[in-house]
């Protein structure tokens, strides 16, 4: 069974998904970041495929992507790094990037590489729903690769329903209408949105992302969804930290509000 699906089957609350950009801070950190995150108790890991033009991303992820590309990251290398990381852990792995990357690599070849390296799911924020449904869905399903679409506070109800139907694994629930790393909406506005979606009784589990940065924001998000995704805050921690493994362990412990190492 797909590792993302079994995760959500076995665990319903407080799911922690951490994002990092592959190739950042250093080209060959991927394996150690995945291994350490998994050991520290991260439930799901989202690996950013660095892109030259990351439209949905704020400054932190943009800059980490530029660094990663300058370091020489590319998709073949990333898949081989992931394959190595898979030797250490069964943690579900999700690749996040832009559709042009998959399109150029070749959709079939890309899905095959996901399968053989141990990637369980994809997030492609600019892939249109209709195009997925028409051209890609069968292929994803045959190979048991999950896909997560995004919803935002402004996504209309019929679209939320459609996204619930098409997503498997989890729905990526964007906390406020902003690029990644941005500030959050007012508490009240946000909670109204979280409750509205909660009351729709969707089939697919939800993770809340964008603007989640610490124990408090993580805990709040977990009240209204199955868990949350942390990206920019983790990248900033990696940039500030000196020893990679300790930085990662401390970061995860901080989110889980455990004693630091």
């Amino acid at each position: 069974m797909n590792r993302i699906k079994s995760l959500f089957k076995n665990k319903e609350k407080n799911i922690l998904n951490i994002y990092f950009t592959a190739g950042h801070p250093n080209l060959n950190d991927t394996e150690i970041i995945i291994k350490t995150l998994a050991e520290a108790g991260t439930d799901l890991i989202e690996i950013g495929m660095p892109y030259s033009d990351p439209l949905a991303d704020g400054l932190t992820i943009q800059q980490s992507s530029s660094v990663a590309l300058r370091n020489g990251m590319n998709l073949d290398l990333l898949f081989s790094q992931i394959k190595n990381a898979r030797k250490h852990t069964e943690v579900p792995l999700v690749l996040m990037g832009y559709f042009n990357q998959v399109f150029q690599y070749g959709v079939e070849k890309f899905i095959a590489a996901c399968k053989s390296s141990g990637v369980d799911g994809l997030i492609l924020p600019d892939l249109p729903l209709y195009e997925y449904e028409r051209d890609l869905k069968n292929y994803f399903e045959e190979n048991d690769i999950a896909i997560s679409f995004l919803i935002t506070p402004l996504t209309e109800e019929y679209r939320v329903r459609k996204i619930d139907e098409l997503s498997n694994g989890f729905i990526y629930m964007v906390s406020s209408n902003a690029t990644t790393g941005g500030t959050e909406d007012s508490n009240e506005k946000q909670i109204k949105y979280y409750e509205r979606i909660h009351n729709m009784n969707l089939e697919t589990p939800r993770l809340i992302g964008f603007g989640i940065s610490d124990f408090n924001s993580f805990s709040k998000a977990c009240k209204y969804a199955n868990g949350a995704i942390i990206g920019s805050a983790f990248i900033r921690a990696l940039e500030k930290g000196t020893k990679l493994e300790n930085t990662i362990k401390n970061f995860v412990a901080g989110i889980r509000n455990k004693k630091l190492v």
Binding site: L55, A56, F99, N100, P125, D126, L127, P128, Y130, E131, F149, L150, I151, T152, L154, T155, R159, V174, N177, A178, T179
Partner: peptide
């Protein structure tokens, strides 16, 4: 859908959809 032949369309993040 916004296509000229196979070119065009709207490949945008959900955030831009509205």
């Amino acid at each position: 859908r916004g296509y000229y032949g196979k070119f065009g369309g709207a490949y945008i993040p959900e955030l831009l959809h509205p």
